[in-house]
Simulated scan of single mutants.
Amino acid sequence: MKIAFVGKGGSGKTTLAALFARHLAAHAPAGTPLLAIDADINQHLAVALGADEDEAITLPALGDHLAEIKEYLRGTNPRISSAAAMVKTTPPGRGSRLLRVVEANPIYDTLVREIGGIRLAVTGPFTTEDLGVACYHSKVGAVELILNHLVDGCGEYAVVDMTAGADSFASGLFTRFDATFLVCEPTQRSVGVYRQYVGYAADFGVRVHVVGNKVEDASDVEFLREHVGDDLLTWLGRSGYVKAAERGTPRPIDTLEPANRAALETMRDAVDAATKDWVTYTRQAVHFHLRNAAAWANDRTGEDLAAQVDPDFVLGPEALRSPLLQQA
């Protein structure tokens, strides 16, 4: 299952993404496939998972290897003329290489590292070399390509820490998830991001689960219920465990406060209850690809990228078993 953590900057979405990934690693059956991805240009997920700052800044960045990612995923797909003709929304088709949450492939070998017992890939920071010449969405495009080619199942987890606010709506990235957790503080500003997010998401059938954070008392819960209604799934209170981690003293996940551990388990239940709809998933990928092609990508590549769409292809487990797909 693909899981997104979104919310206002400073709401605690990265902290919650890390806690959830660590909870899954500790409490899911041994060997459960799990991958964490930091899709936020403000790269903090590695540190939240237990890396020190020096280790975090040396992690290989997906955004720096976009050409290699495209070349691998393109495979032998005859509809894609070259890796250069691939854009962030290019959907897979017959001949494309697909990904599993856990497997041996050049992308994972080069770009995934284990941090605190969690396999992690990072988009990479927006650097001084990018100023004035690049958009950070070009870096996050590597994440969109990976998710568009990822075949995951129940009991498999890809946990993605997204950009703050509603920036993910600049592409179709917000439709790439089975569960979206919007981390919301009991404040008007945080609720404002919720309203903006669900307003966009509703048009595409994206269900948003609100997870309250930094909740101190019943009045905070009541405030959240008043403003987000039935979208409020659960909430986490102020945490000495989190404060210690943020001060450089991480503790085992089982020492998290019981009420907060229960909230993480409620979130996992919501993920496990989600249903996969590969037909809709593929259709939405094609929809955003065609929109991007017409808006800018055709001009940039000099090709009609609508031709990249394989009308008979549906992403999912059946595609993995198809002899027409070259997975080597």
Rank of each mutant, 00 (worst) to 15 (best):
S168T: 11
V140D: 00
N292V: 05
V133G: 03
V101C: 02
H44K: 12
F177Q: 10
C184F: 03
A295M: 14
V211G: 05
P250A: 07
H44M: 04
R238H: 14
G9R: 04
T90D: 08
F169P: 02
E68M: 11
I69H: 02
P317Q: 06
V279L: 14
S239C: 03
A142T: 09
L315N: 02
R113S: 08
A297G: 05
L19C: 02
A259R: 14
V279Y: 05
G240L: 10
A30P: 10
M1S: 13
N105W: 11
R268L: 13
L62R: 05
R195Q: 13
D299P: 00
R247Q: 15
L131W: 02
D231I: 08
P323F: 04
D152A: 15
A285F: 00
E222K: 09
T58W: 01
W296D: 09
G237C: 05
V228F: 09
L150R: 02
Y281C: 04
F223G: 04
F126H: 09
G124V: 01
P106E: 08
I3M: 12
P106C: 06
L73S: 08
T32E: 08
A319Y: 04
P91E: 07
I41H: 12
T175A: 09
T89A: 15
V198H: 12
N213Y: 02
A56M: 05
T163A: 15
K8W: 04
R321F: 00
T32H: 11
F313M: 10
R283P: 00
P250F: 10
V193R: 09
T110R: 15
V198T: 15
I253A: 03
L45C: 00
M86C: 05
C154G: 12
G31P: 12
N42V: 07
K243S: 13
A56H: 06
D161I: 05
F177N: 10
L325R: 06
A201M: 04
A164G: 14
C184E: 00
L324S: 10
A202G: 10
A18I: 12
Y108C: 01
R268Y: 06
